[in-house]
Design a protein around this nucleic acid. Sequence first.
RNA 1: GUGAGCGUAGCUCAGCUGGUCAGAGCACCGGACUGUGGCUCCGGUGGUCGGGGGUUCAAAUCCCCUCGCUCACCCCA
Length: 428
Amino acid sequence: MIQRPRGTRDLLPPESRLWQAVEAVAREVFGSFGGAEIRTPLFEATELFVRSVGETTDIVHKEMYTFPDRKGRSLTLRPEGTAGVARAWLENRLGERTQPLRMYYIGPMFRYERMQHGRYRQFSQIGLEIVGADTPLADAELLAAMHEFFLRLGFDDLEIHLNNLGDPEDRARYQDVIRAALEPRRSELCADCQRRLEENPLRVLDCKVPSCQVVAADVPALDDVAGEASRRHVAQVEAQLRRLGIPYVRNRRLVRGLDYYLRTVFEVVSPRLGTNAVLCGGGRYDRLIADLGGPAVPGVGFAIGEDRLVEVLPAGFKAAALGTPAVYLVPLGDAAGTAALELARNWVRAGVPVEVEITGRSLKAALKRADRDGFRVVAMLGDDELAAGTVTVRDLAAATQTAVAFAAVPAFWRGLPAPAAGREGERS
RNA sequence: GUGAGCGUAGCUCAGCUGGUCAGAGCACCGGACUGUGGCUCCGGUGGUCGGGGGUUCAAAUCCCCUCGCUCACCCCA
């Protein structure tokens, strides 16, 4: 049997409803802040990611799906979304439009990694970028949109971690500070951190090994070494968050994995996600477009891991998204079976979602199935009903039945009370 | 790239140191209740025990290889 490639997943019904519901909220919220969707290719020239994400990052040096096309050009399945957006901004001269541009995207990303809980080779991100504004207000608006999105999904246990990564000059200086502080104590660090000290000293700060944390605690925070400009910027972002009542944690150890970030960086973590708890990561990238050969256009954005998000979706949101909003039409006997599809089509045309029982299972089995799959009403059609031009509609929850004329079913359906929240979490 | 664990019915699993070991529960279909669910009882469908090789009189059970899955490290969504 042919199996799916490692690290990929099949999104099956009814879980696909959850994804659709989540994406609908994203479009709604991000659209409400002045955003519009941007769709860029799933693969790009390899060079784009090497130059934007950064040569020294793990993403570029061991996680990219890179392949030559038939003409020998090196292409790469996108490992993240921002690079493509930046490229599109340049290529389509979006700088000539009124700035800033608020753009969101939803779609798959690819990283060649060993599978793990919450980690896939093909995974989906929901991202939002604000390009063309360098103000703290832009960062704050972005975070507000993100916060609003999570609120609408019903989350109440997420933590926003925020840090100042400084400007690139600050960071270069800071790397020297770290090296100077840690080199003498090299032996106290774990093997990984000794390597990090050479390649990416910032990473030592968020090492999980306790002994490393002890050592790292003595290193001054980046924010203290950073220049006045970046410190003021992030302070103003924080002031806005407080004013908006958006709770966050100032995490001086927070370092992000992509080279292009500067100043404001943040993560959203869920306490219900085990090892890979990061639900969302983002930050400011004022040099990215310039590094790609364009003008100095500032930007700030984030990406939410949709797979992880769906995994910890609040029960109430899930229940609402999974409810089966349809009439279950069960024909009994040959004559009814012949008439069922036409009846269903007429109801569908009148705006009523209908699922017809087409396997011929017994009424008993059909009712059992209706109950199990969360239908609210079953419309039974037998010889008597057919003769009378009615359908016997049974309300599963109330266990009551009434005869409803064929043409009156749409009105009856619309007259049903909103579904109770009593079935919450039943399918989770 | 490194390390560990696991692969038996659609699902969750039992099967002790090799000898009725091919099973249970759930699910599915049917019946008790000839057109009425969420309970109960009864019956039924369903498995090359991941695949290949080896040891043995005998392997789901032991050994080797292989494929797949899972978890952790690294790193990230």
